[in-house]
Amino acid sequence: MKKRTSILGGAAAIAATFVVFVIPFIFIILMAFKDRQQSALRDFSLPTGFHFWENVVEVVKTRNWMMITAFINSSIITVVSVTLLVIFAAMVGYVLARRKTRWNGLIEFLVLAGLMVPPAVVPTIWLLQGLQLFGTLHGMILIEVAYNLPFSIILYRAFVATIPRDLDEAAIIDGARPLDVFFRIVLPLLWPVTVTNIVVQSVGIFNDFTNPLYYLPGNANATVQLTLYNFQSQFSTAYNLLFTNILLITIPPLLVFMFFNRQIVAGMTAGAVKG
């Protein structure tokens, strides 16, 4: 009896979520396989021919291989800023969790403020220009680090609190200096939350649209999210290419999702619950 309702309910839920959540993705895929003419109809028909490969080639070649540049740029920004985030945030989270000083309140306030307060865009541009960092990958990387530090710090601080202090002290007695304690004992033990951090932050930074839009103008510096505007124009949008592009930039998050599903969910909920 109970079993039957759960199967019926499951079937209904599967059908409903299929329509709501899966069909849009199927639509994207179908569009990416069509030629320009058929894609202009924007309907849910099967592709009349197999045009996926030529679409990919055209997308990649457009605007002087902008897609390749964009993937390289996005990868550099993502890898470097996530590396810095992991190290710097782990250091802060570690000392914040271990050492009680009168600064802790202020630091925690700043961390929470960083999660809530929207960045002041134009003053940041003004400042980046002053520092000769405006429109450079370096500047973009530092911006991503600055904006995403609070979330990573919260993740790390919560996790450091679960590592027994005795371990630090045993290491200190064993002769470890502060850097030894951190890099040889604590950081290795933070590995699970580091994986979470890497995964969650890379997805976020790879998908970031707003910040590159403001701080990284110019085609030479394009990031993948901005390539989406290559095939849209007011009059004739090349829908097959547009959706091929969407499909291409969805691949990295999809891979991450397939391999790190659990860490992402854990990280997002952990960070959220604390924040």
Binding site: G114, P119, L127, L131, L142, P178
Partner: peptide
């Protein structure tokens, strides 16, 4: 202390320069 305060420094510099300074500057501008 085995938990050196300078561990805050890299994060503090980046966060202050690129987030706090513009935020306070925005109040003036």
């Amino acid at each position: 202390s085995p938990y050196p305060g300078w561990f805050f420094t890299p994060a503090a510099i980046i966060y202050s320069v690129l987030f706090l300074v513009p935020t306070f500057a925005s109040l003036y501008f």
